[in-house]
């Protein structure tokens, strides 16, 4: 096909188009992925029975805010990296807010208790399973984020994959927190972050292949 013909054909296809509808190609799959992940959590692990009591404690909201905050920042980064030529550096710096906050809370919690009892704050009762459950619950979200991002136009595939993985991991961790009854900031800072980070690494590895368009 001649380029002139191609241009004639493409231009005859001009229709109103814009980001408002384009971004739904990412947001719809994410919403479906989140529902799938939540359903998986409920069927497989179950929502913690003391949820209504837990919601009156600051520990619950600490987990809630850390994971949701990470997810929101990751979504902002993903939205940038899904558009050619857009600079995501400023939005990446926002990650310092949730990460810095949990690090400060962790330092504070560890400093406050006597020497012998720090181990429990760090390892809780579920450190061996927590990160892997977060990874598992993140998989539907990771698939959704990859599928959605691919339908937009990422040009730095590795980085876009990491951001999609971070989004999936943080959202998966947020969903896992409906089951998990750990309440110490050090536990969340280490094991939640480890699970989320693993999904981000997985996203980076897969992104180079899956995000091609």
């Amino acid at each position: 096909m001649q380029t002139d013909d191609l241009i004639a054909n493409l231009s005859s296809d001009a229709r109103p188009a814009g980001w408002k509808s384009a971004r739904m190609r990412l947001l719809w799959p994410l919403a479906i992925g989140a529902i799938a992940s939540f359903a998986a959590m409920d069927l497989w692990l179950g929502i913690r029975p003391d949820l209504s009591h837990a919601m009156t404690t600051s520990a619950y909201w600490m987990k809630f805010a850390y994971t949701l905050g990470l997810a929101v920042v990751a979504l902002l980064i993903v939205m940038r990296l899904a558009r050619p030529g857009a600079d995501a550096a400023r939005r990446m710096k926002l990650l310092i807010i949730p990460v810095g906050t949990i690090a400060a809370l962790t330092a504070f919690a560890l400093a406050r208790v006597p020497d012998g009892s720090r181990e429990h704050l760090l390892f809780g009762a579920s450190s061996a399973v927590c990160p892997w459950r977060i990874v598992a619950l993140s998989l539907p979200l990771l698939a959704a984020a990859m599928a959605g991002m691919r339908r937009l136009a990422p040009t730095q595939l590795g980085l876009a994959g990491v951001a999609a993985g971070l989004l999936a991991g943080a959202a998966g961790a947020w969903i896992y927190a409906f089951h998990c009854d750990e309440s110490a900031a050090p536990f969340v800072a280490v094991w939640y972050t480890f699970g989320i980070g693993a999904v981000a690494v997985l996203g980076g590895l897969l992104g180079k292949w899956l995000l091609r368009w």
Binding site: T3, L6, L10, A17, W19, R83, P84, W213
Partner: peptide
């Protein structure tokens, strides 16, 4: 050139209208 034109066409709704166009074109 044709490949890029098709890409520009099918992804034109990812352009941020508050930003300059040429960085978007050259990134694609």
């Amino acid at each position: 050139v044709q490949e890029a034109l098709i890409a520009i066409h099918s992804k034109r709704d990812t352009f941020d209208t508050s930003q300059p166009l040429t960085p978007w074109l050259y990134a694609i």
